[in-house]
Design a protein around this nucleic acid. Structure first.
Lengths: 212, 212
DNA sequence: GAAAAAATCACCCCGCAGGATGATTTTTCA
DNA sequence: TGAAAAATCATCCTGCGGGGTGATTTTTTC
């Protein structure tokens, strides 16, 4: 079994060095480094790594743009986003654009390695602490419809992940439960909201300020 | 072939009378009238009509609540919503709650009859003028991402309908094209937005202010 | 008037989503 | 402590969604 090949893209040399050491120590193969989004894309093209670690904020094409470029040209490469902010907005966009993972820079080294490994295997994993903030923090405003919906805690989490654009399988992985369990929650959510599919549920969630 | 049985629910007697005459003249059978949402629900329960015409605004349970109650208890009954406002917000909710049609009160008599007839047959039809206003009116603010997406006119319409929660078949009916055509547009939309399913496309649309 | 873009539609395939049902375990709360 | 609610998971089934390909017609644009 060959090593997982990774490209690191961040505009700060210090961060790159830190990540490189961290990943190398875990037995991963850092095959390239980029300081801009554009560089990251061309490196991905020439080196075909298993995973690209992209900082959200970079000169000459930011992380999201680079992500989009890579996924459209090289969809088989897994891209993990790195950020300092726990922004639902960005998270949602990154997921929609096909990111395999989303990491906070202050995440535990083990957590970073875990997410990169999972990404290489084709899984989608969101950093636990980031996920926490997204799932547990509900904007207080406009909570009336939410109250009326009378969702349970777990159903609420599932709904938020639906509203982020995750599939049932991705939700199952994220919440560490089985796919069947997720499907059960999803059905209950539909009943309670009075909708008939996940798209309508997502729209409901966005309109009622459940996310963002 | 028996007449289509309709219940009319509106808190204004004048409106009810107008609708009754209009529908009767078209050969439909108005089997009941209600002045409140609660009445409409109980009438629906006892009379089992083919179609219920619900005013959005009514005392004792508004139209949306009545719609939800009817659809959960008697899903086989088609419900057409009546309103004076062309609100995307309400339209989206009504569709999500299972409305078969959505009519403006100042719609042409022929149009009203057409929608009620279509609803009785199980189709989902949105009043043409209302649809027009929803489809052709794009909030100017935040049009940057939209420009970048570079969608064609028809793709834009399809995306808006996706963001209202319509299925491909419903979109096909609404735009009067084949299902295959819709699917083609949908695929192109996904490519242009860089998303992988309709839920993410809907979220994109809402976030970028494409609807509402 | 020719070339390019947009819109239309068909057929095939596959997998996930969504519906129905039943069941067990854990947690909550009166 | 005992009942109710919540969370977990399974299995079966069906259909729609989404991917791939190809093709024709209409409209736009240079």
């Amino acid at each position: 079994m060959s090593k997982i090949r990774v490209i690191i893209a961040d505009d700060h040399g210090v961060v790159r060095a830190g990540l490189r050491g961290l990943l190398a120590a875990a037995g991963l193969d850092v095959v390239g480094e980029a300081g801009t989004g554009a560089e990251a894309v061309s490196l991905a093209r020439s080196l075909h790594p298993d995973v690209v670690l992209l900082d959200v904020r970079m000169p000459e094409m930011d992380g999201l743009q680079a992500l989009t470029a890579i996924k459209s040209e090289l969809p088989e490469i897994s891209v993990v986003m790195l950020t300092v902010y726990a922004s639902t907005e960005y998270l949602s966009r990154a997921i929609a654009a096909g990111a395999a993972g989303y990491l906070l820079k202050d995440a535990e080294p083990d957590e970073i390695v875990r997410v990169v490994r999972a990404a290489a295997e084709g899984s989608r994993v969101i950093d636990a602490s980031l996920l926490q903030s997204v799932l547990e923090h509900t904007p207080v405003a406009e909570a009336d419809a939410l109250q009326q919906a009378d969702l349970t805690q777990q159903e609420l989490r599932v709904l938020k992940l639906i509203a982020l654009g995750l599939t049932n399988d991705a939700i199952a992985e994220t919440l560490v439960v089985s796919r069947n369990t997720v499907k059960t929650h999803v059905r209950h959510i539909f009943e309670k909201l009075g909708v008939s599919d996940r798209t309508q549920a997502a729209i409901w969630a966005v309109r009622n300020g459940l996310v963002e």
